[in-house]
């Protein structure tokens, strides 16, 4: 059976759900709601956690644009969802399994309608592959969205596009998107390597062949990670092996 996890804000989503009940408007019983104060609280990591836990779809339901009880919380979560969707696409997942819905607490019909639509779409995508490889990809993505660099970019992005970057240079929406996409890719590669070196030490060639990267990519990444203190040399045999430094 399809399972949808939704994060609803107390003021928009949760209230609309209450009203749907009050008006007796049916919607799929596959929905499971988690109430938060504001959708601005919904962490990108939670969205991926829900998928890892077994949700087929995730929907974040908050107040309408420009009318959030918490001013801009909904706008912030919209940006996060955009990037989670890009991340999912990058690892070959259906990006639309994570969505936002912004509505007024009055819009019980819209609430019910959109849950129905999501369930139908999820059924049309078919059951997602949840083999070990897919799960590993998702767990890697989860870690990517817990990384400082990505979170900072997602948070700063809209302001950067509006006011220019820290050096006062203008940044277009396209440039910003391109930057985050390339950083998403490189962070994904970096986290994949870190996860590989977490439980078991490995050499550059081991890692490259197991993860499907070139030895050059892996070597550069590992030397960066050594510089950051996140990976250390574990054995000086030939070739040398490396292991993640647990913080």
């Amino acid at each position: 059976m399809t399972k949808i996890v939704s994060f609803v804000c107390e003021w928009g989503g949760y209230t609309a759900a209450d009203l749907a009940g009050f008006r007796g408007i049916s919607y799929p019983s596959s929905l499971r709601t988690i109430r938060v104060e504001c959708t601005g609280r919904v962490d990108p990591v939670w969205m991926i956690d829900a998928i890892i836990a077994g949700a087929d779809g995730v929907i974040i339901i908050g107040c309408p644009e420009g009318d959030s009880r918490h001013e801009i919380g909904n706008f912030r979560v919209h940006e996060r969802v955009r990037w989670v969707q890009k991340g999912l696409e990058m690892i070959g997942e259906e990006p639309q399994q994570v969505r936002t819905l912004f509505l007024s607490s009055e819009d019980a019909e819209v609430f019910a309608g959109k849950i129905g639509e999501l369930e139908k779409d999820l059924e049309s995508y078919g059951p997602p592959a949840r083999d070990e490889a897919a799960l590993e990809n998702l767990r890697t993505l989860r870690e990517v969205f817990a990384e400082e660099k990505i979170r900072w970019l997602i948070g700063r992005g809209p302001d950067m596009v509006a006011d220019g970057n820290s050096f006062g240079e203008p940044v277009t929406a396209e440039e910003y998107d391109e930057d985050v996409e390339s950083i998403l890719k490189s962070e994904h590669r970096r986290i994949s390597i870190l996860r590989r070196l977490r439980d078991e030490a490995g050499s550059v060639t081991d890692v490259a062949s197991q993860l499907g990267f070139s030895t050059r990519e892996v070597m550069l990444e590992i030397s960066d990670l050594i510089g950051l203190g996140r990976v250390a040399i574990k054995g000086h045999e030939d070739p040398p092996v490396f292991k993640e430094v647990l913080m």
Binding site: C38, R41, H70, I72, R80, K149
Partner: peptide
């Protein structure tokens, strides 16, 4: 603080938490 948690879910260093959520 109104507890909306926007700073929490945005914090690059995962240094902020929200009480009750």
């Amino acid at each position: 603080c109104k507890g909306c948690g926007t700073c929490v879910a945005s914090c690059p260093a995962l240094a902020i938490q929200a009480a009750y959520y």
